Amino acid sequence: MRLITFFSKNSEAMIASLGQHIALVLISVGLGMVIAIPLGILLTRHKKAAPTVLALAGTVQTIPGLVMLGFALIFMGIGTLPALAVLTIYSILPILRNTYTGITEVLPSYKDAAKGIGMTKSQVLFKVELPLALPTIVSGIRISAVYIVSWATLAGMIGAGGLGDWIWTGLATYNTDYILAGAIPSAILAFAFSALIGFLQKLITPRALRRNA
Rank of each mutant, 00 (worst) to 15 (best):
R207H: 13
T80D: 11
V67A: 15
F71D: 02
M157K: 09
S17W: 05
L42H: 08
I167Q: 05
F191K: 10
F71T: 03
Q201I: 09
E12L: 10
L87P: 02
G164N: 04
A187Y: 08
T169E: 15
P108M: 10
M14K: 08
P135T: 06
P94N: 09
I197A: 00
M68D: 03
A23W: 09
A72P: 04
A190M: 01
G102R: 12
M157E: 00
A190R: 06
T44A: 10
P185V: 02
G19T: 00
L24K: 05
D165H: 01
I63D: 03
V138K: 01
V67H: 09
G162S: 04
N98E: 06
I63N: 02
V106K: 14
S150R: 09
F71M: 07
G79S: 12
V67Q: 04
T169N: 14
L130R: 03
D112E: 15
M119I: 09
R211M: 15
Q61I: 02
V53W: 01
A152I: 14
W151N: 10
I78D: 08
A85Q: 00
T136E: 03
A114N: 12
Y100L: 06
S91E: 07
A155H: 06
R2Q: 10
A114Y: 14
A208D: 11
L43N: 12
M33F: 08
R210I: 14
L66H: 01
T153M: 09
E12G: 05
V86T: 12
G65Q: 05
V60Y: 08
M119Q: 05
I15H: 07
T173N: 09
G32S: 02
V29G: 06
R207T: 15
L189D: 00
K127V: 11
P131D: 11
A23F: 05
T59H: 03
F6W: 08
Y147G: 10
A13P: 07
I92F: 09
D177M: 11
L24R: 07
P38F: 05
A49P: 08
L200G: 12
P131F: 14
L73R: 10
